[in-house]
């Protein structure tokens, strides 16, 4: 395990360098992604699969009847169609808000507790991170397709875009400050232009991702919280409509991109 982690750190370093020099790291990256022994993200996939089938919570139920949008129990391909509108909840949900819904309604878990423990500490374990890894991996190789048919789906997209350009806090930052131009960097970190399909797809198809610097798997909700933290904003409420609107906007912009998850990043 130790050597595996060390070699990942080296490989991830290699990827960062290669990007900075605009070489083509795709081969090496693909190899890492496809190799369950090189990407610790797969440990989360495996643990998530166990959690999915286990009877748990006050209602002693599994998640096998959870409807992720393609019908109860259908996991394959579900992540490639999220976020979407769910009539039972009467709201647009991303994977994480939908998992909360199922954990509360099927298993009887407490919503506030799920939200509080969704992000693990460094090197720690969170059920949510494992479940997200499991469900998302079942869409690996598939393309994002977000039809935006329901009016609330359209509204979520439009809200996400409106918020993307909203400036506030000490630094007057908006998402667009860092993510609306091509080929820019902050220090040495490359910033995707999320208003372009290509960059949005490169970003969204690689999450959830194993973050070497965090020593754990991170989800898109975490990435949103993280960017807002850098923007000197208060903590984003996990699973809020705000978070879902941003994720809807990003994912729709990434439509057509082929998922390769769990990813692995710096």
């Amino acid at each position: 395990m130790r050597t595996t982690l060390a070699s990942i750190a080296v490989a991830a370093g290699f990827i960062t360098c290669a990007w900075a020099q605009s070489e083509n790291p795709v081969e090496e990256y693909r190899r890492l992604l496809a190799d369950p022994f090189a990407n610790p993200g797969y440990l989360f996939v495996d643990r998530g699969e166990v959690l999915w089938h286990q009877k748990r919570g006050p209602k002693n139920a599994s998640l096998e009847q959870c409807d992720l949008g393609l019908g109860p129990g259908v996991v394959e391909g579900a992540y490639a169609r999220l976020p979407r509108y769910f009539p039972d909840a009467d709201r647009v949900m991303d994977l994480e808000t939908r998992l909360i819904w199922c954990m509360v309604h099927l298993q009887g878990f407490d919503e506030a507790t799920i939200k509080k423990t969704a992000f693990s500490k460094r090197g720690g374990q969170s059920d949510m991170e494992a479940l997200v890894a499991y469900v998302a991996e079942k869409s690996s190789g598939m393309k994002f397709e977000i039809p935006l048919e329901h009016p609330k789906e359209k509204e979520a997209y439009a809200l996400g875009e409106a918020v993307f350009y909203r400036r506030s806090s000490y630094f007057d930052f908006s998402c667009s400050t860092c993510h609306s131009q091509d080929g820019r960097r902050i220090r040495l970190q490359e910033l995707g232009n999320m208003t372009r399909q290509q960059d949005a797809a490169r970003a969204m198809t690689s999450w959830p991702t194993y973050r070497v610097s965090h020593e754990t798997l991170r989800t898109m909700q975490h990435r949103m919280w993280d960017c807002l933290w850098q923007m000197r904003m208060p903590d984003l409420d996990y699973g809020s409509d705000l978070s879902v609107a941003l994720i809807m906007w990003l994912t729709k912009n990434a439509e057509g991109g082929e998922l390769a998850v769990p990813g692995i990043k710096r």
Binding site: L159, A162, R166, M233, D237, S240, D241, L242, A245
Partner: peptide
């Protein structure tokens, strides 16, 4: 107003 409400709710 709608945008600001969403943002406020999103940070409680």
């Amino acid at each position: 107003e709608r945008r600001e409400q969403l943002v406020r709710d999103g940070f409680r």
